[in-house]
Design a protein around this nucleic acid. Structure first.
Length: 256
DNA sequence: ATGGCCAGCATCGCTGGA
């Protein structure tokens, strides 16, 4: 079972890249963030043509998530965090085979002194409560997506420059630990990884060429599944293409 | 030394991302 996640920054622009990437990599599930598409415009047919079923929760201009799957996926999926009256489309959860797959697009947070930052922390708190509930019904959980949090200084190209800034602040990192505390592990850190592995690079300042990146996209899996995780890696190939997303896809392989 | 982009929506500048 291969589970992947990719913030595509507009599925309209990136659809050809997503189709090519799926053909080449053949994950069982691909979670997408920032589709920026209303549901009526979702490219269901193009995705079906290459053997994937799509469920999605989108809106105009901003946000939007989708879950593409080759394996049996329930039709009774979830698209909102309970207890949070939020018009922003940032979550989609479904059971794929017997794994509860939760695709998330965590709010960016703008700046630590902003209202968007408070909303981010609130959203993360609601997500933690949701996970505690999900855990009661599902033993195998995978939480994938754009977390907009670099968990440690090892996940940042220039830790002093990012100290205390949004994506790296202590409350955000604490919120990340709270997610883990619901019984999840960071699949990426189950393995020795090349130093300087990131998932996002700013479009400006030649950041990708200089590998000035952050690791803010993650795949967390139930601690009970850790032993069956055989690999986790970031594929930077799509970031090298013409008109790339600013994020690279991440994949975890499970021997299930 | 500084600052550099990109997508969408609606125009010919803004919002938002991270």
């Amino acid at each position: 079972m291969k589970l992947s996640s990719w913030n595509v920054n507009s599925l309209k622009v990136r659809l050809p890249q997503v189709v090519d990437w799926l053909k080449l990599n053949q994950p069982d599930v691909l979670c997408l963030q920032e589709t920026k598409l209303q549901d009526a415009h979702f490219p269901v047919d193009e995705i079906a043509e290459i053997g994937y079923h799509a469920i999605f929760s989108g809106q105009k201009t901003y946000n939007g998530v989708a879950l593409l799957s080759k394996v049996n996926t329930d039709t009774d999926y979830c698209t909102a965090l309970p207890g949070l009256n939020d018009p922003q489309k940032r979550l989609i959860a479904a059971t794929c085979n017997d794994i509860r797959v939760i695709c998330i697009y965590v709010p960016n947070g703008e700046r630590v002194d902003s209202e968007k930052y408070s909303y981010k922390l609130e959203w993360l708190k609601a997500l933690t409560s949701f996970l505690q509930e999900e855990r009661k019904r599902h033993s195998k959980i995978a939480l994938l997506g754009d977390f907009n949090i670099a968990p440690t200084s090892s996940d940042v190209y220039d830790p002093p420059a990012w100290e205390g800034k949004v994506l790296c602040s202590a409350p955000e990192r604490e919120a990340f630990q709270q997610l883990l505390a619901t019984g999840l592990v960071d699949s990426f850190r189950l393995f020795t990884q090349p130093p300087g592995t990131y998932t996002w690079w700013d479009y400006r300042m030649m950041s990708f060429r200089r590998n000035h990146g952050l690791r803010i996209d993650h795949i967390l899996i139930s601690a009970e599944m850790a032993h069956s995780c055989t690999r986790c890696w970031v594929d930077i190939a799509p970031r090298k293409l013409e008109r790339p997303s600013d994020h690279a896809p991440i994949t975890a392989e499970l021997s299930l």
